[in-house]
Computed example of a mutant assay.
Amino acid sequence: MTRPNYLSAAVLCIASLMAIPAQAATLNSPYNTLTGDAPLVIGHRGAPAYLPENSIGGNELAAEMGSDFIETDVMMTKDNVLIAMHDTTLERTTDVAAFYAPRNGGYAVSDFTYDELKLLAVKPTGTGDETYPGFTPSGDDPYRIPTFADMLDALTAYNDANGTSVGMLTEGKYSDNIETSRAVIRTLIEKGYDTPEKSVVQSFDFDNVSDYADLLAAAGVEMGVAQLGIGWPLDDGTLGVLSFGGAFGTLSELSSYTDTVALGFGTITEELIAAAHGEGLSVYGWTFRPEDLEDAFDLAKPFLDWGLDGFITDSPDYLRLAIDGYGSELAPVPLPAGLPLLLVGLFGLAGLKRRT
């Protein structure tokens, strides 16, 4: 169903006033990214600051807010169905307790079949809600637990209906498991997410990331491959990525089979970005959670100065404006936390002031 894209129109309206002409931007880009292009806005599990995470409805809102990619977590159910889910348990993000008693002492995803999980709704967390002003999701049940295949189909349908090209950043939320990794790559290829412009795969597990690279090479397909972790210097000053499990890879080592490092933004430095770019690696930062538009400008500016290539964020609307406004003379006035971007777009530049 085609419907007015209010949020995208609002963002584009403001961005067009804030940014230099596109042709000039190509010739004289203000961005210090690896390619010189504007950094990516990556909706972290959709737009969880506003709607339930890892849901089709949340992904659509993130797309309308100007995301270039949607970050989605995947794992297997008991009957080997890939679903979109961050936690290994169901309590935080679903209404599972209303339907089922605990199994094996809890609610592990791996203890339930997908047919059982289809009964559950994905509920909002944090500042999220069940609706967003001016936004109506497509489909009959946009806040159920989706299969990974369904989520890709929904994103394709959104892109086709709106003339967009939002891609998928897929994170494997499981320890090293070659069969699950194989299912992730197979599903992405089958659904047409088989180019770097459409698809990036990532994991905190070094073996998973290595498996992704090997599987893509065997399939003769190129996608983006990213190693998740935190930026970490060794005692001798060597820069690299440290995983939560304690594994470490230097930027030089990682560049042999990945093209991106995705790091906790508090561990990213100007030196690290420069070193990564020197190895041909782009750098994404996670997870940016600005409270309002002014906070987004202040939070993003040093990373934009340093050349960060991608911002993974719960609030893609704020980051879209901060990135598109970078290098201009315009900056935001303080806004009430959570004020819908829709109002900013519909009522012009009321939310912006000149940068001093």
Rank of each mutant, 00 (worst) to 15 (best):
K78R: 15
D305M: 01
I268K: 00
E60T: 05
D205S: 11
A49V: 11
L228G: 05
A108Q: 06
A300V: 03
A274C: 09
P340F: 09
Y143M: 09
D324G: 12
E171F: 10
F99W: 12
T136D: 09
G66H: 03
N177P: 15
T260A: 11
Y193G: 01
A149F: 05
E53N: 14
A157K: 12
L7G: 04
L272S: 04
F69V: 05
T26A: 13
D160K: 10
E222Q: 15
G249I: 05
E91P: 03
L341T: 10
G325T: 00
D236E: 13
T35V: 10
D324W: 14
V200T: 09
F248N: 07
M76Q: 13
F148R: 01
P302L: 05
G66R: 01
S181D: 15
A97W: 06
L281V: 06
A84P: 05
T113D: 05
S282E: 08
P124V: 01
L263M: 11
D292M: 07
H44V: 08
S67C: 05
G249P: 02
G231H: 00
P146G: 06
D295P: 05
P48N: 04
D176Y: 15
A38M: 03
M85Y: 04
Y326W: 11
D160W: 08
A22T: 13
L251C: 10
P233F: 11
T258F: 06
S210L: 13
N159M: 03
D73V: 12
A300M: 07
A157D: 13
D95Y: 07
G278A: 07
D37L: 10
D295W: 02
V109D: 00
A24Q: 15
L234M: 13
H277G: 02
Y100N: 09
D295S: 11
F135S: 05
A350Y: 10
F297L: 01
N54W: 00
V166W: 01
G126T: 10
P334I: 10
M168D: 00
L239W: 01
T195I: 08
N54P: 07
A63C: 12
E116T: 08
S175Q: 15
T195E: 10
P137W: 05
V184H: 07
M85F: 08
G66A: 06
D235Q: 09
I230S: 15
G310T: 06
Y114Q: 02
G172A: 15
N54K: 02
N32V: 02
Y326H: 09
T147H: 04
A331P: 07
S29L: 02
L40Y: 13
R186S: 14
N59M: 13
A84W: 02
A276K: 03
M75L: 15
L119Y: 13
E91S: 15
N208T: 15
R3F: 08
A331D: 11
C13A: 14
